[in-house]
């Protein structure tokens, strides 16, 4: 039996084999998945918004920039090396294309902030399934580092 833990909006999870982590129904949210192959140690953060406010008393995991940094810190604290970490990014879709609101472009902004934070640490993005206008569910397997992406109506793919 695989142990699967669901990581909700603004949550962060770390896992080792045989555990799996999942984020269900990502729209404009982004799942950042980091993996250290050598230790078979990985983690996901499920971020909702692009940038943490300067005066931040809210949770770091909610924001693309601070959430990505926190995930890197959490993995590093468990022995993962930044040089070995690779990143996969999923989500950041635009679900409502006709709405002309402040948050219309939030998916793309989320992705941009995640990538910026990863660059600060020199972490490579090895795969991504981002943007578009479809929701996605993500399953991450710490055994292999593989990530399965499901959508509502098309076949799943592994990245």
């Amino acid at each position: 039996m695989r142990v699967q833990k669901v990581i909700g909006i603004g949550q962060l999870g770390i896992c080792r084999p045989p555990e799996q982590l999942a984020c269900l129904g990502l729209g404009s949210c982004v799942a950042v998945i980091l993996y250290d192959h050598q230790l078979r140690l990985g983690g996901i953060v499920h971020v909702l918004l692009p940038k943490a406010p300067a005066k931040n008393n809210a949770s770091e995991e909610k924001y693309a920039d601070s959430g990505t940094r926190k995930l890197i810190r959490e993995l590093a604290a468990r022995g993962a090396a930044k040089e070995r970490m690779v990143a996969k990014i999923v989500g950041g879709a635009q679900m409502f294309t006709n709405l002309n609101l402040t948050y219309a472009d939030i998916g793309r902004n989320n992705i941009a902030e995640v990538k910026k934070a990863l660059r600060e640490f020199g972490i490579r993005v090895v795969a991504e399934d981002v943007e578009g206008n479809r929701g996605r569910s993500v399953y991450f397997d710490a055994e292999t580092g593989k990530v399965v992406v499901e959508t509502a109506f098309s076949p799943s793919r592994t990245i």
């Binding site: 909006i9 603004g10 269900l24 129904g25 990502l26 729209g27 404009s28 949210c29 909702l48 918004l49 909610k62 879709a93 679900m95 409502f96 294309t97 006709n98 709405l99 002309n100 609101l101 402040t102 948050y103 939030i106 206008n133 479809r134 929701g135 996605r136 569910s137 959508t151 509502a152």
Partner: peptide, 23 residues
């Protein structure tokens, strides 16, 4: 605002509404 509709996973449908109030 003029409404918009989509057919998709509930989680994905709720992301933008939650991002807007969750800021």
């Amino acid at each position: 605002a003029p409404p918009d509709a989509t057919v998709d996973l509930l989680g994905a449908v709720l992301d933008m509404p939650l991002a807007t109030v969750g800021a």
